[in-house]
Design a protein around this nucleic acid. Structure first.
Lengths: 208, 208
DNA sequence: TAGATTGTTAATCGATTAACAATC
DNA sequence: TAGATTGTTAATCGATTAACAATC
């Protein structure tokens, strides 16, 4: 299987979550157009994505929800699991930590980092907080693969460089500072300010 | 001017922030390739975006930073400003509120909403928190245009419908629940879980 | 069967990039 | 001028959607 388009990966994640909801509702089969409707996309989109992962249903009575969840998981999860750290455990960091709580998944939140003495060595949102000075040691000991970056802007570049140096393979950057990473390191950036300004622009345009 | 592509609007927001940083560094002119480099995009991309907003420099010595900031602001800001409310003032809500603090911009955070009696009628992250029951009254009195939705999943659909009913024109949805809005209401959704799973997928693929 | 659904190719749409003339 | 830069059209790339044959 060749690497999938990013957009398809995003939708697979959404399909899985929606399908797990179906299971909780005791719905064991679902048509492509039902799944699509729940996500406000088209049925063709759904079927094409599933084609890309080589999945096909056995009959014309919709997809077996449990089976499809497993198929998607085989594609997007890694067997051994991934260890994640949140760097900068302020409001945003804690919000993100909350998403991991109670979820048994292949993504394990194993540490947080901060430079606030009030936080260091405490358990915050279910995970121990380490000082920035321990980045090297902790990333290696806990085999951390992914860093979620929620530090203040002034720290972003330095901390990002260090995590890469110490062995991180992927960064999810929530700071407003654009980062540069070497080839082979995956970087995903999300800018909340930009999202808000985008909404404001289109609200204004709709009004005109 | 016809409505701009969403991607261009996002970049305009980033250009402006980058340009404001330039001003703080006392850099008054900037070449398209310098601006591009700071954002890790191409110079052509920058020039094409500026073409779309009808901006052009006076000479070949780069763009006048101050002038370009003003030009972008004329495009993406609205004259009267926009009033924003954060609905659900948990960790994520407070993180978002923090971005507004001290910024003088056309986006005014004017209220937050929650159902926690501990929070109601208190000032949190610089803004007063109202109960959900006051959505109608407060949206109308404070002329709130945009809702940032950071409520728990079970509340998402109901609250979103209410905000629309009471006059909201744009929603930025941070919950994991896909929303449906009537025509004329602008909806932007961002799913943090999906982002993390996407990073995990590409880290895994890079390793293979 | 007739109707509904799936899987897949081809066409379309939208966004990025390449190419290049114009300018300083 | 020569070199660098801008503004813009045309080409390319990637993602979505339309069309449709195959299946139950």
């Amino acid at each position: 299987m060749t690497t999938l388009p990013g957009k398809t990966v995003e939708r697979l994640s959404e399909y899985r979550r929606t399908l797990l909801e179906c299971l909780r509702e005791n719905r064991n089969f679902i048509y492509s157009h039902d799944l699509a409707a729940r996500l406000h996309i088209t049925a063709v989109q759904v079927r094409r994505d599933l084609m890309l992962i080589g999945y096909s249903s056995l009959h014309r009575k919709g997809y077996d929800v449990k089976d499809l969840v497993d198929a998607i998981s085989r594609i997007i999860d890694s067997d051994e699991g991934m260890n994640v750290a949140i760097i900068g455990i302020g409001n945003l960091g804690r919000a993100l930590a909350g998403y991991f709580k109670g979820k048994r998944s292949k993504l394990n939140l194993v540490a947080s980092f901060d430079n606030d003495p009030q936080k260091i060595n405490k358990v915050i949102s279910g995970v121990k907080c380490y000082p920035y000075d321990d980045l090297e040691k902790t990333i290696q000991e806990l085999r951390i693969d992914i860093a979620i970056l929620t530090v203040p802007p002034d720290f972003a570049r330095r901390i990002a460089e260090e995590t890469v140096l110490f062995g991180i393979k992927g960064i999810l950057n929530f700071t407003t500072v654009p980062l540069n990473v070497p080839a082979g390191i995956y970087l995903e950036e999300y800018d909340m300010i930009t999202s808000i300004e985008k909404v404001a622009y289109f609200v204004k345009e709709n009004r005109l």
